[in-house]
Write a protein that binds this DNA or RNA. Sequence first.
DNA 1: GACCAGGCACATC
DNA 2: GATGTGCATGGT
Length: 221
Amino acid sequence: MVGEQLKTIYQRLFEYFGPQHWWPGRTQFEIIVGAILTQNTNWTNVEKAIANLRRRRLLEPLKLHEIEIEELAALIRPAGYYRLKARRLKNFLDWLFEKHTGQLDGLNDIPTDLLRRQLLGIKGIGRETADSILLYALDRVIFVVDTYTARVMLRHRLIDTDADYEQIQDLFQSNLDEDVRLFNEYHALLVRLGKQFCRPKPKCSECPLNLLPHTIEAEYP
DNA sequence: GACCAGGCACATC
DNA sequence: GATGTGCATGGT
């Protein structure tokens, strides 16, 4: 049963790594900013960008909505793709102010599936970013899938090589209790595992999941 | 110097 | 629908 395997993986990861205390952000808004800035980017680079914004007291929707995009881009430069991400942050804020009066609280009444579709309508917010915002900033019961998640699942033969995002997400959502705290911790633990052991060049002999059945596909990234 | 990092949009076939 | 490319900094 897949559910049992997923629970076993979770238990081993939690025993090995302990709680990850995600998301590493102080406010809902900071989590959203971090979710956009961390796209294909090391978190330590994102921290530098967020520190710049904090120093300038810009970590609130109104301030970021008002700042010039060129100035924003310069501040988030350490996060990489900085011109692109400045535009993406602006796209989110334009949506928040034009559709929801700039208040994150205004999102609370919107059903999760509808809110997800709205977020995906913002240019620069794809599935992982939307789901990270939903789970980690807005406490919605959504499982976040990222590169590590797919890689760990594939190497443990829990998905097929051609599984898409929604299929992987559905694997977790259909086989686990729908629990925000579980989804939060599980995804964070998968990222932690991925960073340390399940990189493109795996370190299976040292991995806490080493004894579980799995196969490495040499050709898979 | 090469490789990698908590993606996404868009062009082209 | 699948596949390729641009976007960019900073750590290992």
